[in-house]
């Protein structure tokens, strides 16, 4: 039988997030959540901040989740996760708690609750699906929005070139909590993402994962390109993939051939104003973003030396029967 309906129940992977959810076409966050839950397995309890993920997965009476899932508010995913974890501890249950939120719910409004959760050393994996703006409310800038990006609250105009400020360096703040493990990952590198989820799941204590998750609507690109753009985000150095142990950089995904940032920028509507002819500010901001990427590359030592099976070129290599490395 090769009918989809009968095959669905016999898939050789755990389905934490089921089909029938209402994410947009090519949604990076839906993909990231699917990958995270399937890597984490069935013995988890999820908490979810208010946002796209919550909305598109649970329009009552339907739910796309196959694991216990709890949503309360925009800013308290980490706090309700703390409560769930405390209850599990009280009951002697070993189930792992995964708290989830977007960048708004993590970098901004839920930041305090997250810090509290990390400080209290709750045994929770917090996953932030970073699509770099408030997408659920219609693309407003967050502290995670990259410099110069256009959002509805950072529109370009005579006096502005998109967002004035820098993307908040959240991982460094997480690092300052000296948690056992924190990492950044990207939907463009699913094997790396899965490995990081599994690593975090093994650790007793607070862990943090920042997953770069393109939003076709918010970033202004065709849904078809979500992976390609995420890949360029990593290959340019704008979204470095790093791992922190107790706050120290423990490993990075080396970039084999750094790609100029314009390759990343020009594919996205949110940077369209950086390509307007005859505007000297456009060139300036492109150079600025290139400098930010170069800064990341230098700061984390991202430039690889030679071919490395785990670098930006090697990590997504496939062969017959699956990814070349798992």
């Amino acid at each position: 039988m090769t009918e989809p309906a009968s095959l669905r129940s016999r898939q050789p992977r755990f389905r934490g997030l089921e089909a029938g959810h209402r994410a947009c076409q090519g949604c990076g966050e839906a993909l990231a959540a699917r990958l995270v839950t399937e890597s984490a397995g069935p013995d988890v309890i999820l908490t979810n901040a208010t946002g796209c993920l919550e909305v598109f997965t649970t329009p009552w009476p339907q739910s796309a989740w196959r694991v216990p899932w709890l949503h309360s508010l925009f800013e308290n995913s980490a706090a309700i996760a703390s409560g769930v974890e405390a209850a599990l501890k009280a009951q002697g249950r070993r189930t792992k708690v995964i708290a989830m939120g977007g960048d708004g719910g993590t970098f901004d409004i839920g930041f305090q609750a997250l810090s509290g959760m990390l400080e209290r050393m709750h045994n929770v994996l917090y996953v932030c699906y970073d699509n770099e703006a408030y997408m659920n409310t219609g693309i407003q800038r967050s502290s995670s929005t990259p410099h110069a990006a256009m959002t509805t609250t950072s529109p370009p105009g005579k006096n502005r070139m998109g967002k004035r400020h820098m993307k908040k360096d959240l991982l460094s703040i997480i690092a300052a909590h000296h948690v056992p493990y924190a990492a950044s990952a990207s939907v463009a590198y699913p094997q790396d993402l899965r490995r990081k989820v599994r690593r975090a799941m093994e650790i007793e204590g607070p862990t943090f994962l920042l997953v770069h998750s393109p939003c076709p609507l918010g970033w202004g690109h065709d849904g078809t390109l979500s992976i390609e753009i995420a890949r360029l985000g990593v290959q340019t150095g704008l979204f470095p993939l790093i791992e922190l142990e107790r706050g120290e950089v423990a490993s990075v995904m080396p970039i084999r051939n750094p790609v100029p940032v314009v390759e990343y920028l020009k594919r996205q509507g949110r940077f369209r104003h950086l390509f307007s002819d005859g505007d000297h500010r456009a060139r300036e901001e492109r150079e600025h973003l290139q400098a930010l990427a170069d800064y990341n590359i230098e700061r984390y030592g991202l430039k690889g030396d030679g071919d490395d099976p785990l670098d930006t070129d090697g990590a997504d290599t496939v062969r017959r029967g699956g990814p070349a490395r798992t």
Partner: peptide
Amino acid sequence: FSAASVALGASAAGS
């Protein structure tokens, strides 16, 4: 805010 949230989570988790 987190106190109430913790109570919420704990209660939902069966405590």
